[in-house]
Simulated scan of single mutants.
Amino acid sequence: MKPAAITMGCPVGIGPEIILRFFDSLSEAEVPSAPVVLGDLGVLTRAAALLGSRNQPVAWNAGEDVTPDTVPVLELSQLDADKLSWGQPTKESATAMAEYIRRAAAGALAGDFSAVITCPISKKALNEAGIWHPGHTEMLATLTGASRYRMMLAGTRLRVVLVTIHEPLAEVSQRLTAENILGCIRMTADALRRDFAVEKPRIAVAGFNPHSGEQGMFGREEIEIIEPAVRRYEGEAEVSGPWPPDTVFYKAANGAFDAVVCMYHDQGLIPFKLLHFQDGVNVTLGLPIVRTSVDHGTAYDIAGKGCADAASLRAAWQMAMDIARNRAR
């Protein structure tokens, strides 16, 4: 396969550090399939010095092999690393951050990269630089022309998929429709079969209200929207629900389901991060490219301190490779 691409994320966040730690963790057998980094050579060199890394960032061009003890970098910006302060993004660093994403998406669409793995970005910094996207997921959907997409968070014990993503909680109920939920169920079933090689997926659909509305006592979204969507599903997956949100994740984490379709962001991410805070992976469903991401933010509070953990990045890379192989079968 073509190499995967890792976008460096925010130059003043923990992205550069976890990239260096990730490359330091690669075994000799993994080096030939190592990804390339789309980012800034000077920033990564600064991070390597900070960490005392055994792998040194080097300029990389398409078609070149990845050699041991190096971090191959497709250099897309030339920021003055000495003038950047950890945890303090600038318009220049935000503009560079966006360029890494654009080039990764374009390269994956062109077949130059087998997958895209993204390091964390600052949504606020993007917006202040005039780049208006709610987040990575929406930006990549725009760049790849995907009109329907979903966010999946995946780990060894739990997978969750979100019907609504970055929406104010007060607006979620208004945005829930049977069609939207049904589309999410279908996309989840397709992804489990194609990307995760689950022959007959078992999907639980979470309710929206406490106790799934208690037969309408605590809300009618389950009766009027969610249950009709579940009944309309026709396919090879086993789909059930709406399940009470306070029990369905326990069941899924203990093997009863392959994924839980959740109505809103925090409903799914709170239980997921409780189990997979360090090794969780963000997977974007519905894109024409393979995209995974670390499941954490820029962590400006610890950036530059040399203590960032690369476990989520390693998991994101491994999952991206697995998905790319499954799609190639």
Results as ranks from 00 to 15, higher is better:
3 P>M: 07
5 A>I: 13
6 I>T: 12
6 I>Q: 10
11 P>E: 01
15 G>C: 03
15 G>K: 01
20 L>Q: 09
20 L>Y: 05
21 R>E: 11
26 L>K: 07
31 V>I: 15
33 S>Y: 08
36 V>N: 14
36 V>T: 14
37 V>W: 01
40 D>K: 01
40 D>Q: 06
41 L>F: 06
47 A>I: 01
49 A>I: 03
50 L>H: 05
51 L>W: 02
54 R>L: 07
57 P>L: 01
58 V>Q: 11
58 V>L: 07
62 A>G: 00
62 A>M: 11
68 P>Y: 07
70 T>G: 14
73 V>G: 04
80 D>K: 04
88 Q>I: 08
91 K>E: 15
92 E>I: 03
92 E>H: 05
100 Y>H: 10
101 I>G: 07
101 I>N: 05
107 G>V: 04
110 A>S: 14
121 I>K: 00
121 I>S: 04
124 K>H: 12
125 A>M: 13
127 N>F: 10
127 N>S: 13
127 N>V: 04
128 E>K: 13
131 I>D: 07
134 P>G: 01
137 T>K: 02
143 L>C: 10
147 S>K: 15
147 S>H: 15
148 R>S: 14
148 R>D: 14
153 L>H: 04
153 L>Q: 04
154 A>T: 15
155 G>F: 09
156 T>I: 05
159 R>W: 08
159 R>A: 11
170 A>I: 15
172 V>L: 14
172 V>K: 13
175 R>K: 15
179 E>Y: 12
180 N>A: 15
182 L>N: 12
186 R>D: 14
188 T>G: 10
189 A>H: 04
189 A>D: 08
191 A>L: 03
193 R>A: 14
195 D>S: 04
200 K>G: 09
200 K>V: 13
201 P>R: 02
201 P>G: 08
202 R>W: 07
204 A>V: 08
206 A>K: 10
207 G>Y: 01
208 F>A: 06
213 G>E: 02
216 G>A: 07
218 F>S: 07
220 R>I: 11
229 A>T: 13
231 R>P: 06
232 R>K: 09
235 G>W: 08
236 E>N: 11
240 S>G: 11
241 G>W: 00
241 G>I: 05
242 P>Q: 06
245 P>N: 12
247 T>P: 00
249 F>G: 13
254 N>Q: 02
255 G>N: 10
256 A>V: 05
257 F>Q: 05
258 D>K: 13
261 V>W: 02
264 Y>N: 02
269 L>P: 11
274 L>D: 00
276 H>L: 13
277 F>M: 11
283 V>R: 03
284 T>V: 12
288 P>R: 04
288 P>L: 05
289 I>E: 03
290 V>T: 11
292 T>G: 12
295 D>Y: 00
297 G>R: 00
297 G>Q: 00
300 Y>M: 02
305 K>L: 13
306 G>T: 02
308 A>I: 02
315 A>P: 13
316 A>V: 08
317 W>E: 03
321 M>F: 07
323 I>M: 12
326 N>D: 03
328 A>R: 14
